[in-house]
Design a protein around this nucleic acid. Structure first.
Length: 452
RNA sequence: GCCAAGGUGGCAGAGUUCGGCCGAACGCGUCCGCCUGCAGAGCGGAUCAUCGCCGGUUCAAAUCCGGCCCUUGGCUCCA
C-alpha cells in the first residue's frame, strides 16, 4: 500500500477494521548505485536506512496515519525464497544460470491489469539477462550473485568513484548466492502480512506495468487466488511549467513544502483533486490551497468563539443553518463514499463555513446547538478524516498565552491612537503586527486578532 | 507503433459509472453593495463555460457510439 492520506476514512466513520501495510524496498540496484553519495552511507544497508528514515519522517510530517506494519525486503528474504520455490515447483518459473525467471507464457492471464498483449510487449531486462530467458517478457524472481557494477553505471553520479567489483547484499538460496528479483518482494510481503487475497492495493499509476502486472502474475500463479480485489492507482504530481527536476531547481521535497506552507496547506492541496487525477504543483495552486485552508480555519475559529460566547442560546434555532449542517454531513459522506471524492467533500466543508459565518454575521443571538454541531463537524470531518489541525494548535500554551496578552497590550495602545485620530500610527502598528504574523480585525466591538 | 489515463470558465477543479435535477458544484481571481476612518476578514450580489475537434444515436448528451488532434504515464532499468 502506498502512503495514501485519505484512506483513514475507510476506518472510523465507515466502520471497517483496516489492516494497513506499507512496505519499504530496501534491497535494490538503485540503492547500490548511490553508495558513497553525499552522506548516504557506504553500504547498501546504510543507504537504504538513510532513505527509509527520511520517508518515515516525511510521512509523519504530513500527518499521515501510521501503517500497522512496515515490512522491509531485507527481513523477508526467506519468504521470498519460499515463494520463488513454489513458483518453480508449480511450473511457473525456471532456473537459468543461478537466476530464476517467471515464465509469462505459463500464466494465462498475463497482461490482464494493463490490457497488454504478450506479443506486443518488448523485451525486459539487460542483454545478458535476455539470453537467459525463454520469453523476452519473462522477468527475474531471483538474480544470481551480487550487483554487477555495469548494470548500475548509468544510475551512478559521474563525480562518484566507479564501483569495480560486484556489490550489494546477497543471500543463500537453493540456486546459490543471489538477490531477490524485482517484483517478488511485494507479493511475498503482502502474503506474509496480509493474506493471499487483499482488498485494496494502492500504488502510483506509473507502476501499473510492469510492476503490478508482475505482482499479480506471481501471486496468483503461486496461490491460485485473486491477488487484489481493488486497485487504487494514484495520478502523478506534475509541475506548472517544466517537469520537476533537480537540474532545473524547480522541485520541492516534502519537508521543504511542509516548511514553506505548513501541513494543513499541503493537505488541503492534496485534497483539492481526486487521487486518480494527476495534480499540478505550483505557486498558484499552493496559494489557492492556502486560501481554502484559511477560510476553513477562520470559519472554525469564528464558530468556536460564537459557540463559547454568552450570545449563544439554548432556545435559539436557526432552521436554515441547521439544514445546511445536515446537508454538509450528508454530502461529505456521499462524496467520500464515491471513490474518495475529496474535492467534493472539501466543498461540503466550505459550504458549512459559509453557513456558519452567515449565521454569526446575521444574528445577535446564536443557535448554540447548531454552533456546537458545526464545531464538531469541522473537527470530525476536517480534523479526523482529512487530518487538518482544527482545534489542536501546537503546544507551548504558556508562550501562546503570553503572546496573546502582549498583542492585547499593543492593541490597547493602538485603540488609544485611533480614538485620538492618529490613524497613521494605528495603521503602522497593525502593519507591524501583520509582519509578525498577527492578523488584526477591527470590528464593532473593538479589535480582534488571530495568529496566522 | 502498442497499452492506459486525461482534455470542462481568467486559474484551479467536481460532475462523465446509471443521458434529462448541468442554463455545469466548491474555491481562487475580477467587479458592485453592506460593514469600516482605512484595510482585512465576513456577508450579499454579479461577472466568466460553443464542456478538445468532427460526425452519429436520442424527444434530450459534458455524459452514449465512431473518427481525429493534443497532453501525461507505461512499453529499457527500477520500484
Amino acid at each position: 500500500m502506498g502512503a495514501g492520506g485519505p484512506d483513514a476514512p475507510l476506518a472510523g466513520p465507515r466502520g471497517y477494521d483496516v489492516r494497513h501495510v506499507e512496505n519499504f524496498t530496501d534491497v535494490n540496484e538503485k540503492i547500490v548505485a548511490r553508495i558513497g553519495e553525499d552522506d548516504f552511507g557506504d553500504s547498501e544497508e546504510d543507504v537504504a536506512e538513510y532513505f527509509t528514515s527520511h520517508v518515515i519522517e516525511d510521512m509523519r510530517g504530513l500527518n499521515l496515519k501510521r501503517a500497522e506494519v512496515y515490512p522491509r525486503v531485507s527481513e523477508h528474504v526467506p519468504e521470498i525464497v519460499d515463494l520463488v520455490e513454489t513458483l518453480v515447483e508449480r511450473g511457473y518459473a525456471y532456473e537459468s544460470n543461478g537466476s530464476v525467471y517467471f515464465d509469462v507464457t505459463a500464466f494465462e492471464d498475463y497482461g490482464k491489469l494493463s490490457n497488454q498483449r504478450l506479443d506486443e510487449i518488448e523485451s525486459q531486462g539487460v542483454e545478458d539477462e535476455r539470453s537467459e530467458k525463454r520469453h523476452p517478457a519473462d522477468f527475474a524472481l531471483w538474480k544470481a550473485g551480487a550487483v554487477d557494477p555495469d548494470d548500475i553505471a548509468e544510475h551512478r553520479h559521474a563525480d562518484l568513484p566507479a564501483i569495480d567489483d560486484a556489490c550489494g547484499q546477497t543471500w543463500e538460496s537453493p540456486w546459490g548466492e543471489g538477490r531477490p528479483g524485482w517484483h517478488v518482494e511485494c507479493s511475498a510481503m503482502s502474503m506474509t502480512h496480509l493474506d493471499e487475497t487483499i482488498d485494496i492495493h494502492v500504488g502510483g499509476r506509473d507502476l501499473v506495468f510492469p510492476h503490478h502486472e508482475n505482482e499479480i502474475a506471481q501471486s496468483e500463479a503461486a496461490t491460485g487466488q485473486q491477488f487484489a480485489r481493488y486497485w487504487l492507482h494514484v495520478g502523478l504530481l506534475q509541475t506548472a511549467g517544466d517537469k520537476m527536476s533537480s537540474s532545473l531547481g524547480n522541485f520541492l521535497t516534502v519537508s521543504d513544502a511542509l516548511e514553506e506552507y505548513g501541513v494543513d496547506v499541503v493537505r488541503t492541496f492534496y485534497c483539492s483533486t481526486g487521487y486518480r487525477s494527476e495534480q499540478t504543483f505550483g505557486e498558484d495552486e499552493m496559494r489557492e490551497a492556502e486560501e481554502r485552508w484559511d477560510r476553513l480555519e477562520r470559519a472554525y475559529e469564528a464558530a468556536v468563539d460564537a459557540c463559547d460566547s454568552t450570545d449563544a442560546y439554548a432556545k435559539v434555532e436557526d432552521d436554515e443553518f441547521r439544514e445546511a449542517l445536515a446537508e454538509t454531513r450528508e454530502s461529505f459522506r456521499a462524496a467520500m463514499n464515491d471513490d474518495f471524492n475529496v474535492r467534493e467533500a472539501m466543498a461540503a466543508l466550505l459550504e458549512l463555513a459559509t453557513a456558519s459565518n452567515r449565521h454569526v454575521d446575521d444574528n445577535d443571538a446564536y443557535d448554540y446547538w447548531a454552533l456546537r454541531e458545526t464545531v464538531e463537524a469541522f473537527e470530525e470531518l476536517g480534523g479526523d478524516v482529512f487530518g487538518l489541525s482544527f482545534g489542536r494548535e501546537a503546544g507551548e500554551e504558556g508562550t501562546v498565552t503570553l503572546a496573546e496578552d502582549l498583542v492585547d497590550l499593543v492593541l490597547e495602545i493602538r485603540e488609544a491612537e485611533r480614538e485620538a485620530g492618529n490613524y497613521e500610527r494605528a495603521d503602522d502598528l497593525r502593519d507591524d503586527l501583520a509582519a509578525l504574523g498577527v492578523e488584526v480585525h477591527d470590528g464593532d466591538d473593538g479589535p480582534t486578532f488571530r495568529f496566522e
